[in-house]
Write a protein that binds this DNA or RNA. Structure first.
Lengths: 266, 266
DNA sequence: CCATCTTTGTGCACGCGTTCACAAAGGCAT
DNA sequence: ATGCCTTTGTGAACGCGTGCACAAAGATGG
């Protein structure tokens, strides 16, 4: 998972569970693909496979939206595309601004997945004066000074932050002050925002770290004949005082806990 | 959430809950920042604030790793950095390959957050022969033909897919066949992988769609219940199926451009 | 050594999300 | 119509994750 909501305890918007909302775009993508192949109807089983989820979950998700299927037949693809799009708010146009036009910001600006889903890049903003006016993805980069006017002039309510971590909070504050109420944050920082502002974050390195955890575990399993179930065996082996924390550098020695085998994939 | 695991029902690795694992990188980031400021110890309350979570949750998360704190004092920053790094498998070096060197792939290659966390970009791979040899982020782009040899030569077990959606599954298959067992997928597709291979996905447009949902809801709450709608022509048309979808269109919404005319499915 | 104060570690309860399993609903053939 | 077959929609059970609240543990000062 590259993201998660910050604050706000899952308000259960209109009775639609947060987990379901997060899957709707997935269904929409699968349905769009079917639509392009002119498939008229689809069963929950087929669609679930295409979306990579379980069919019971899919049916329950759809049941929160209404009874849009036909028993014995399935779901009408076009109709469902429309209903989900409407529910997600994609039947209207959302102008967004991208702040921080470095490598990532430029990639986002060029990303085709936005425009095709009702998101329109209203402006690209960067703090570097040297960037100002330079065309990226067909749009001239604007300077940060213009941030407030761009937002109010275009009625932007969604902002994307792709700046370095150090600048993110400041940019966030200005976006919020100018009227933005939803923020997609790519900077590796926790953003503080007032009540009523939604923040979602995408941290590329966090995803890799989670993969590394599982990868390490996989490697450890095949090289260690140790029994699988050894819950909390390491509790007693912990040193009482804080030892000198060995530098977590490249030395892949095992930790102070003698029990845990050092996992070294050959 | 920008991501989620594909298949595999949360194996509860070594008794550490998946949700906890997903937060460890967050703690690590906050701790690293403290470490750089030479802060010796930190309380669960302080660290929780810095990481953007609740302190009880943080303490419970740490309790899965062991008793690494000192009551009445808090946690030793350096020690905790080491313990979490070790748990995540970051005390060793993970060579990764990035496949698909378009805008996003190049951005990823330049992203500093990888190298600083034990991830080393072993190679950049692209299918376009014109890209071959061109330096990106200091590395020459290699052609897809070399994929298998690069992976086995470098012992790569983690692959990043940043190709167009159409090529993703094929690339994935080749990565897996060559020995990769963890994949970070940026392509907007569901990848099918054999048992034992982990896939995490990051979909930029999905995040925006989730934000749009909440944004629409926020807008609908503050304005009068006018069934506002959608200036998107491509979705306005609705197939004449299911005539009894009674539950449709009770939501009110207001676009960022102000009130918008109602477009109800006829 | 003892009292006090701080902060951890966790037992417990609650709520959300997932999954199972099946009755109800509709299509279709006869 | 009637009966069979397919697939939806959902009630109910279960498990995971979260947050509360507090006892235990250790530091600190007298």
């Amino acid at each position: 998972m590259a993201t998660g909501r910050t604050h706000r305890p899952a308000t259960r918007s209109r009775g639609i569970p947060e987990a379901t909302v997060a899957r709707l775009p997935l269904y929409l993508r699968a349905l769009t693909a079917l639509s392009e192949r002119s498939v008229p109807t689809v069963s929950s089983e087929e669609l679930a496979t295409a979306a990579g989820v379980n069919s019971a979950k899919l049916r329950k998700d759809f049941s929160y939206l209404g009874s849009y299927g036909t028993r014995g037949v399935g779901y009408d693809v076009e109709y469902l595309v429309y209903q989900i799009s409407r529910e997600l708010g994609l039947t209207q146009d959302w102008p967004v601004v991208i702040v921080g036009i470095g490598n990532l910001g430029a990639a986002l600006a060029n990303y085709g997945g936005f425009a095709s889903r009702g998101f329109r890049v209203a402006a690209l903003i960067d703090a570097d004066p040297a960037m100002a006016g330079k065309p990226v993805a067909g749009l001239p980069v604007r300077h940060t000074d213009e941030l407030e006017s761009i937002i109010s002039d275009n009625g932007v309510s969604i902002g994307v932050i792709a700046t370095p971590a150090g600048a993110a909070q400041q940019v966030c504050d200005r976006l919020v002050a100018a009227g933005v109420t939803s923020i997609l944050n790519f900077a590796p920082t926790v953003l503080a925002v007032p009540e009523g502002v939604d923040v979602r974050k995408v941290d590329l390195s966090i995803e890799l770290q989670i993969l590394a955890f599982h990868e390490q575990r996989k490697a450890g399993e095949e090289t260690t004949p140790a029994p699988a179930g050894a819950p909390r065996a390491d509790l007693a082996a912990r040193p009482a005082a804080q030892p000198r924390a060995a530098a977590a550098g490249t030395s892949a020695r095992k930790g102070p806990d003698g029990e845990v085998p050092a996992v070294m994939p050959a």
